[in-house]
């Protein structure tokens, strides 16, 4: 029932069932992975982190899908960012040359403008999502979840046959 995970995730997010930091962490890593084309070394490491760290994988999947869509939309910008860092900033050239000749770093394909652009923009976005997202989720859970649970619509939804069918299909939320 993998396809139902996003729905389950949204529902659990609404009712505050998951750890805010785990959700934010999943979103951050997923967004980072989704933004980068191909499978360079740092993305494989990010995937390992996703599996090893106790972050929300459903959140990561949703963020990954979102990032892939956004990267198609913004790839000229991402490419320009990569080109800026790799070519236009002269001060970084000696560092890039060193990295280029490093056998391990070469596997990251950092010298590709798209990969570098995605690394920069995805990295910044991931940090923002992990920090700001976590604090927003905590705020939401402390001040909004209790109020939301008292809404009649929400109560009706919880009791509805649809919710019970979903809980049964998903193996119990």
């Amino acid at each position: 029932m993998f396809g139902l995970n996003p729905l389950q995730f949204i529902f659990r997010l609404l009712i505050g069932a998951d750890q805010p930091r785990a959700v934010a962490g999943g979103l951050a890593i997923g967004f980072f992975i989704g933004l980068t084309p191909g499978w360079p070394l740092h993305i494989l490491l990010a995937c390992l982190l996703l599996l090893i760290l106790n972050v929300n994988i459903s959140a990561a999947m949703i963020a990954m899908g979102l990032a892939v869509s956004l990267s198609w939309l913004f790839d000229p910008v991402i490419n320009a960012i990569g080109s800026l860092f790799l070519q236009d900033i002269q001060a970084l050239h000696s560092f890039w040359t060193w990295a280029y000749n490093n056998p391990v770093l070469a596997w990251t394909r950092f010298n590709n403008t798209m990969v570098m652009g995605a690394l920069i923009s995805g990295g910044i976005s991931a940090i923002l999502i992990a920090t700001v997202g976590a604090s927003l989720l905590i705020k939401y859970q402390t001040s909004w979840v209790a109020k939301l649970k008292n809404f009649k619509v929400f109560k009706w939804l919880q009791r509805s046959i649809l919710a019970r069918a979903y809980a049964w299909l998903a193996g119990g939320a």
């Binding site: 084309p37 040359t97 280029y100 000749n101 590709n112 798209m114």
Partner: peptide, 14 residues
């Protein structure tokens, strides 16, 4: 191709 980017070649020192 789209989303492929360009490979920038730096001097080979090693």
């Amino acid at each position: 191709e789209r989303r492929m980017g360009r490979d920038i070649l730096f001097p080979v020192t090693r």
